[in-house]
Computed example of a mutant assay.
Amino acid sequence: MERKEGLALGPTSPILNLNGIPTLFRDGANGDCFWQEPHGSWRPVQDDGLYAVEAECLALHNDLAVKIFGDIKRYHALLHIAPPFLNQAGLNSEAAMGRDAFEAALVKLASFPDLNRLLYLYDSRVLVSAIQECTKEVSQLTGEFYRIFNLEPFFTPGIPQEDGTRWSTSPTVTMLFSTLGFLFIRLHSLLDYVAKLAREVECMPTNFSSYPKLASSNFLFGGRKRLKLNNTAGTLFEACAEVAEIEVVRNLLIHDGLLDDTPKAYEVIEKGQAIERFVLMPDRKNGQFERFRNRHRFYGREDRINLRLMTLC
């Protein structure tokens, strides 16, 4: 089934399914699946919370201003006179200003009202922006994983395949696993950013006689026990299987190798056609990969990550 990038959704548009076998839009959508938006990205048919996160983050930008300035009007009154470089230099590529020039400019602006509050607000907002952008990345990576999983050939096209279950390793499978691995890494990054924001809000300064450093600069999700929010029900800081899996998989990928010594994608062939595709994850117990001596990649449970990846994202 060909990928029809950028086309309007129509009867023959592909629907990406969790079992790796695409269907057509005219045949309907059952359960979790993906369709292609006009600009080319693959989005889940069911709401994945992306826009809700965006709305919350937009509100957080204002909430931080209120928290730091005490009154949103006090902050808004400064916007028309504040130099643009205050919220750009050292934070994004829009400001063509080096470190020394930035420091010199701040010295000249020493008498600017609430200068240090503005600087601290813009620094804090970077944490919120990181959550926004990382959430988008997770959404895009999830769609890309299922695009490859559904539409790209695992094996050389045109070669007959015998019935049964077979595995393939190929450039396509390498890209599939690379996408899956980076998805877990970015999911963990999202946990880090949320932890940083929580830390910053809990330790927000009240004295702005000087330019404050962020309390969260060296804070990561692994240090969440120091948060007042830790173990709070309904937050990412409560103990749950999904967060534990993200942590253990990310740590494996960063520190201890691959999800499989040779990444493999499986296909179930019936009458010469694939009726199912799947990718296996190593067995876990009590939040950790099951281990015997040096071995920690056992697949006795045949855990098909493709069928439940959406519960993590």
Rank of each mutant, 00 (worst) to 15 (best):
S216I: 01
L183G: 06
F182K: 14
A198R: 11
L183H: 11
M204Q: 09
S189C: 12
N218S: 14
I185R: 06
L191E: 00
V201F: 08
N207C: 10
S216Q: 04
F208E: 01
L180A: 03
L183N: 08
E202V: 07
A198V: 10
F182L: 13
S209R: 09
H188A: 09
M175S: 13
V194C: 12
T172P: 06
A198W: 06
P212K: 00
A195H: 00
S216A: 10
N218M: 10
L191G: 01
E200Y: 02
F219H: 04
R186G: 02
P205L: 02
M175T: 14
T174S: 12
G181F: 06
Y211F: 15
T172H: 03
F219D: 02
V173I: 05
G181K: 09
A195S: 07
N218H: 13
K213S: 15
L183T: 11
N218I: 08
F219L: 03
T206H: 12
S210H: 12
K213A: 15
P212H: 00
F184Y: 07
T206D: 14
G222Y: 00
F219P: 02
P212S: 01
T172K: 00
F208P: 04
V173Y: 01
L220M: 11
K213T: 14
L190S: 07
L191Q: 00
C203R: 14
A198L: 06
S217H: 13
N218L: 12
I185Q: 09
L197Q: 06
M175E: 14
M204T: 10
L220Y: 15
G222D: 07
S178P: 02
N218T: 13
C203T: 15
G181N: 13
K213V: 11
S178Y: 10
K213P: 08
V194I: 13
L190D: 05
R186S: 07
R186N: 11
N207Y: 08
L176T: 04
M204K: 04
R199H: 14
P205N: 00
V194T: 14
R186H: 09
L197S: 06
S209H: 10
M204F: 11
F221W: 02
L197N: 04
T206P: 01
A195F: 04
D192K: 03
E202P: 05
E200N: 07
T206C: 11
G181Q: 10
F221M: 00
L191C: 04
L191M: 05
T206L: 13
N218P: 07
F184V: 01
N207G: 07
K196W: 01
I185H: 07
T172L: 06
L191K: 03
V201M: 13
G222H: 06
L190T: 03
S217E: 15
F219W: 02
L220E: 13
E200D: 06
Y211G: 06
T172A: 09
T206M: 10
S217A: 15
F184C: 02
C203D: 13
S189P: 04
P205K: 00
F184E: 03
L176D: 01
V173N: 01
Y193G: 04
P212E: 03
N207I: 09
L214V: 04
A195Q: 02
K213G: 15
H188M: 03
L191H: 01
S209L: 09
Y211L: 11
T206K: 13
